[in-house]
Design a protein around this nucleic acid. Structure first.
Lengths: 256, 256
DNA sequence: CGCATTGTTGAAATGAATCAAAACTTGTGG
DNA sequence: CCACAAGTTTTGATTCATTTCAACAATGCG
């Protein structure tokens, strides 16, 4: 089932095609859920969207989906699993700039810049759909879809701004609480939260790279949050026993 | 000349109209410089742009140009002076999210979100041009201008990402050095740098709010940078005696 | 001239990083 | 099915960067 020399290397780049019809439907469904939560798209909108989805690829944790400096050719739609945008400091420190959940385009804004200033890397195993830049541009001709795409991008930008505030102005506990709130809120939007619990396969190391803290400190903060009864996190499952109290601590309010 | 009860209050909001022809020309010139540095626009492009500029307003330091939660009606083009986008923490701490220099739109992305998640505030005295949302949408019909606007927005986003890296991954000295490099690089793009020197009217308090550091620490770091011969900063003038060495320290590279 | 803002200094307190090592998971191959 | 390797979580001790508090000097403005 695996090619030889497989391993867990970070920069691994083998892309396995998974063009079965089930995954394809899943891709379109998750994208729709993201772009059109109020279900205002008509049949033609949905058809156009589904036609824009080209190949589907499975990826493994650590796999690089696109590299800093690459030309922006095709957009990548996350279908299952979690990825991130990241930049590196010369010291070799990786900083996660944004987290891409199912339904997210890994490189919004399309081809406005000649080359990207960040890499996209898988944080877990999963699969992604390719959306060629020209298909995307085609979609923008359709008013309803263009609006949804622009809104998604605007939300993306709002999240970046929130990250800036989070990184610069909040102490570690609040910072991590905020990140968790954000992720769960976004997972809920694409139907991946049941009650107040969801799959949460990110390691503490990853949380550290996203919050600009050390992994050790993240560990201690998580213990604090657990002890305060604000989160339950184990075996890849995350639960908020008292969402309101956690959101108050984090100063989190879901964006409109 | 001033209305009574004027003072220096942060939330001051009196807007003085300055619709003289000189300021108007300055507005168009600085916007062109920003959108079309390679001067590829034709006469019609430039005409459309100049027609989109509505009223011009003078602002004072500290004045609020638009508030968090406001609906996004008209875009604000900074013509002279410096402004910022900022968010507040419940503790009352203000965090600067982005710095708006002459030529920048204070709220890019237009009306994709119902209400903004940040405020826009003047950091110095200056003046701004209003660009009604509908004029902006009109401009987007023109391919050359639409491209330039999208590119400007993409650059804006790239700078936000760089801020995230800067805030999360770089120690104070590098962080401040990086911010200074960014600002001077952007000021140069709009012709406000002569040699390696420029006007620099931002207080250390403002630098602190932009970098997530305390004003005291910013002060000490600036002294370090001065002592190392990397910057000269006094009386509102900033100079880089050795730009390359500063950029190396900051890991700064101007975006393409 | 006086008052407000900005820049500067020192000492003490603290949040978070680092280093090092152990316990625990998880997947893998024998 | 067990044993091993690799990654992940946890713990403790120590160091370091940065904040905070407080006070004072310089600067600019009305």
């Amino acid at each position: 089932m695996r090619s030889p020399g497989d391993g867990n290397a970070r920069a691994d780049n083998g892309a396995r095609l998974v063009n079965d019809i089930g995954t394809r439907l899943e891709a379109i469904s998750v994208w729709l859920r993201k772009l059109d939560p109020e279900a205002t798209f008509d049949a033609r909108d949905r058809k156009l969207l589904s036609e824009a989805v080209a190949d589907l690829h499975a990826f493994r944790a650590g796999q690089v989906l696109s590299n800093e400096g690459d030309g922006v050719g095709t957009a990548v739609l996350i279908v299952r699993g979690i990825a991130c945008r990241s930049k590196e400091t010369l010291g070799g420190r990786r900083q996660i700039i944004a987290i891409c959940l199912p339904g997210d385009l890994s490189e919004p804004g399309g081809a406005a810049l000649e080359k990207t200033d960040y890499s996209v890397q898988a944080l877990t195993a999963g699969c992604a759909a390719l959306v060629p830049a020209r298909s995307l541009r085609g979609l923008e001709k359709r008013e309803s879809i263009a609006f949804a795409l622009r809104r998604a991008e605007a939300r993306d930008n709002a999240i970046s701004r929130e990250w800036i505030l989070n990184l610069a102005a909040r102490p570690a506990k609040e910072r991590i609480a905020h990140l968790l709130c954000e992720l769960v809120s976004r997972l809920r939007q694409v139907g991946l939260v049941r009650g107040n619990a969801c799959e949460f396969p990110l390691s503490q190391q990853v949380l550290a790279e996203a919050t600009g803290l050390s992994a050790v400190h993240v560990n201690r903060i998580l213990q604090d949050l657990r002890a305060a009864g604000l989160i339950r996190l184990q075996a890849g499952k995350l639960e908020f026993p008292d969402p309101l109290r956690l959101e108050a601590l984090a100063e989190f309010s879901p964006l409109v």
